[in-house]
């Protein structure tokens, strides 16, 4: 894979967290601690490098605490790497939690505009896509109701719909495919396929290996913050499954 077709280049990225023995964020504890640092360093992501080719769906797999989510948040510019760099070609949008930033007292319509602008869309652009967003979410009837009256499914569907309609070049997704009922899941799957058909890139984290195999072309396997393997989805998931079984024995 040559550099000019890579949508995302992850170059020796490391991210550390400080673990405080006392998780007490008060001035008193800081003063008592004095100059001594009691923080331990913990490398959640350690020297990970890979490239994500443009127009493909890329999966991140690994066990709990393997650093998938940290890496995803770093890709979404919520965390900043302590070492290494991430290069994104094009506009990136993240879908780590849908409907974040919804104001419960405001109507669905107002929240669509608010949420879309948090995700970086201009008012004009929302105007143009508004009907599409509402139709996709399937909450037409309730769009002028305050979202606090929405069922949790409606809430999530509307949030999801706004996010996928922000028209990013790179979409970063954290297990949100598990939202909504079967019909909506199928709809979102179709949307992702449409994305990659248009030459856009999707990066997703999932614990469901069948889903990963079905949707992803390439997969990176993370283990305790380091990269175990990256490559073809079938091969890597097979190795991963084998490792899980081996461990149990």
């Amino acid at each position: 894979m040559s550099a000019d077709t890579a949508a995302v280049v992850v170059d020796h990225v490391s991210k550390k967290f400080k673990l405080y023995r006392e998780r007490n964020q008060t001035l008193k504890s800081a003063v008592m601690r004095g100059r001594k640092t009691v923080a331990e360093e913990f490398w959640a992501v350690n020297d990970v490098s890979f490239e994500v080719p443009e127009g493909h769906t890329f999966g991140l797999i690994g066990r709990n605490g393997s650093g998938k989510s940290t890496l995803l948040k770093t890709l979404a510019r919520i965390y900043y790497p302590d070492a290494g760099s991430i290069t994104l070609r094009g506009k990136a949008a993240s879908l780590l939690e849908v409907g974040s930033g919804f104001h419960p007292e405001l109507s669905g319509r107002e929240n669509v505009y608010l949420n879309a602008s948090i995700l970086g869309l201009k008012r004009r652009e929302v105007d143009a896509r508004f009907d599409e967003i509402v139709e996709f979410s399937g909450v037409e009837k309730f769009i002028d109701q305050p979202v606090k009256n929405y069922s949790s499914g409606m809430y999530v569907r509307l949030g999801f719909s706004v996010a996928v309609h922000t028209n990013p070049d790179i979409l970063v997704v954290d297990e949100v495919l598990a939202v909504g009922d079967g019909a909506f899941k199928e709809k979102s799957r179709q949307k992702f396929l449409e994305f990659t058909r248009d030459g856009k890139t999707v990066i997703l984290v999932s614990h469901s290996l069948p889903q990963i195999r079905e949707m992803c072309d390439q997969v990176a396997w993370l283990d305790k913050g380091t990269l175990r393997e990256v490559g073809d989805a079938e091969t890597v998931t097979e190795h991963y499954e084998k490792a899980l079984v081996d461990e149990k024995e």
Binding site: H103, E105, L106, Y113, G120, K122, R123, P146
Partner: peptide, 20 residues
């Protein structure tokens, strides 16, 4: 470049505050 977001966040506060 993201000044529209500032406007929207402001209106969220203004509109949300005295709802109901």
């Amino acid at each position: 470049a993201t000044r529209e977001l500032l406007y929207n966040l402001t209106m969220r506060e203004v509109k949300g505050q005295y709802r109901r």
